[in-house]
Amino acid sequence: MKTIELDRETLVAVYNNSNAIGRKTIKEQLGEKFSEILPITNRVKTLKDAMEELGEEHEAVKVYRSMEWNLRDTMPDIKAYLQLRIITAALNEGWEPQFIDGEYRWYTWYELHTKEEIDRMDEKEKKRLVLLDGRAYASSCCGLRFSTSRNASSYSFSSFGSHLVFKSQELAEYASKQFIKIYADFCFLPKEKESK
């Protein structure tokens, strides 16, 4: 058998374009070095990637598939929640919170800015913004930006469900930026439909 060497970028492309059997073969060939060579943040860039990473038999994927058609035009927050469960499970690579002493869990944190607040910012502050146009959500111009990730164990209130927490700050930050549109659908009520 001839050995073929691939750089990381090519290997990621091959993995992302492979079917389930091809992905499994690559995982087996790389063994323990798989996650080091192909980090999860390289493998999961879209909802489709997350679903392929988990497989169709994963409980979160099965629930989403069973409701996907019914949610296509309604309840974008529920649809987004189901999508975020898939994304979170894929990025956590099997890790689930145990709710034990000393365990850290991370979740996303956003700030909502009105147009007036953005107008008052200096150029340096504006450059820090990763804006998502909010007109579809609030019917006025505003922006949503990723602010930081938070450690869930240091607070006594519950603002985020355990299905949407991450095992590391880096994963929470990655998800916050990579999937901002899905988080926006989850966090905001849709604009009311205009009456005819």
Rank of each mutant, 00 (worst) to 15 (best):
M1I: 11
T3A: 08
T3I: 11
I4N: 05
L6K: 01
D7I: 00
R8T: 07
R8M: 02
E9V: 11
V12N: 03
V14K: 06
V14M: 09
Y15G: 04
N19T: 01
I21M: 06
G22M: 07
K24Y: 09
K27T: 07
K27E: 12
L30N: 00
G31Y: 02
G31C: 02
S35L: 05
E36G: 01
L38C: 03
L38E: 02
L38H: 02
L38A: 01
P39G: 02
P39M: 02
T41H: 00
N42M: 10
V44F: 11
T46M: 09
L47H: 05
L47I: 06
D49Y: 02
M51R: 07
L54K: 04
G55Y: 08
E56Q: 13
A60Q: 11
A60T: 14
V61A: 00
V63A: 01
V63I: 10
Y64H: 01
E68R: 06
W69Q: 06
N70K: 14
T74F: 11
M75G: 10
P76H: 04
I78T: 12
A80W: 00
A80M: 00
Y81F: 11
L82D: 00
Q83H: 09
Q83S: 06
L84W: 09
L84M: 11
I86L: 03
I86Q: 03
T88A: 06
N92A: 04
N92C: 01
E96Y: 07
P97H: 00
F99N: 02
F99D: 00
I100G: 02
I100E: 10
G102K: 07
E103D: 01
Y104F: 14
R105Q: 10
W106T: 09
H113Q: 10
K115Y: 14
K115V: 02
E117P: 00
I118T: 03
E123T: 06
E123W: 10
E125Y: 03
E125V: 03
K126M: 01
K127M: 08
K127Q: 09
R128W: 09
L129D: 02
L132D: 09
L132E: 13
L132W: 04
D133V: 06
D133G: 08
G134H: 10
R135D: 09
A136K: 12
A136L: 08
S139R: 13
S139T: 12
S139P: 00
S140G: 09
S140N: 13
C142N: 14
G143P: 12
G143H: 12
F146V: 11
F146Q: 10
T148C: 14
A152Q: 13
S153P: 01
Y155A: 09
S156F: 14
F157N: 12
S158L: 14
S158W: 15
F160R: 13
G161V: 09
G161W: 04
S162A: 13
S162R: 12
F166A: 05
K167T: 10
Q169A: 15
E170R: 13
E173F: 13
A175M: 04
S176N: 03
S176V: 04
K177A: 08
F179Y: 05
I180C: 11
K181P: 10
I182S: 05
I182F: 08
A184M: 02
D185R: 13
F186Y: 14
F186H: 11
F186T: 04
C187M: 15
C187V: 09
C187P: 15
F188P: 13
P190N: 15
P190Q: 15
K191Q: 15
E194M: 14
